[in-house]
Every structure is written in C-alpha cells, then in structure tokens.
Amino acid sequence: MNPVRRTLLKSIVTVGMLASAISVSLVKPAAALVASWNKNAFSAKTIADAMKEAGYSGAAESSDILLKVPDIAEDGAIVPLEVTSNIPGTTSIAIFAEKNPNPLVADIQFSNGAQPYISMHIKMAETSFVRVAVKAGDKIYSQSKEVKVTLGGCGG
C-alpha cells in the first residue's frame, strides 16, 4: 500500500464532502425564502380536499370573519371580494369558490404589521358559496356567503 496515495485519496474525499456540505448550506436558505407553491391544494377538485391540502380542515364557523361579496355577480370573471378577520392572532386567510373546478383561489399569509385583511377579484365558474378560512394560532375558523353568478368566468 502506498501511504502517500492513501492520504491523497482521503483528502480528496474530505474536500468533496466539504464542498457538498457547503453547497447544501448555500442552497437551503435561498429555498426557504420562497415557500413552494402548494400544487396539491390548488389542484384539489373538492372544497373538502382543497381545505385539507391547504391546512384549513376542521374549521369552526365564525362571525368574526367579515366576508364582503356581491349577492349577484353578472360576470363570474370578476367577482370583487373583501375579507377582514377580527379573530386575534390571525396569521393567514384562504379563499375558496366551492364549485370552481379547483376550489382554492388564494392563500394569504400576514406578517410584520400586515392587517388580517385582503381585497381581490376572483373568478367563479358558477353560482356557489365563497368560503374563506382563517388560521389563528393552531385554530381554524371559516365563513361563507353565496354568490349568484349570471355568466360563468372559468369555462370557454
């Protein structure tokens, strides 16, 4: 056995391991900055599956969630929606259109002073309930309201 060769091989292996350790430590923080898009939740086809995959199952109805949507939407392509959560410790709000092909519309996380409020325009395929779910601590709450859609906004 050649001792020089052994040492050389060992040091090559060590350098290799170090390099991979460095690259792992470099990659991880960058990946952690952007949470990966929750494909399972957004491709779920039922409201129950979508709520489960998005982490909002077991929600209790709460009147402390204010959901503002029109009673009748003439155009399902643009349904204005406003949600305010008056539940202390609200960290996120998810929006679902129950009869859309994929019910989950959006999942919004609040931090560093953002008020538990969101306003946006959503698409609705047909008349259905719009459900919003709120995460506060380890508890889930929800509220829903029916929107009658005259012209669907998802088909073609």
Binding site: N100, A106, S111, G113, A114, S119, K123
Partner: peptide, 22 residues
C-alpha cells in the same frame, strides 16, 4: 415581508389586490 400569497388560476385576469399594513 408583510404579505406572502399563493394564487391559483381563479384569480381574475389583470389581478387586483388590496392590503393594509400597520
């Protein structure tokens, strides 16, 4: 970061959103 959102295909064309920061 104050708002971190994931959207699906049912957000309207030319998306509009509003939020509030204390």
């Amino acid at each position: 970061t104050v708002l971190d959102m994931q959207w699906g295909v049912a957000v309207s064309k030319n998306p509009f959103f509003g939020f509030k920061v204390k």
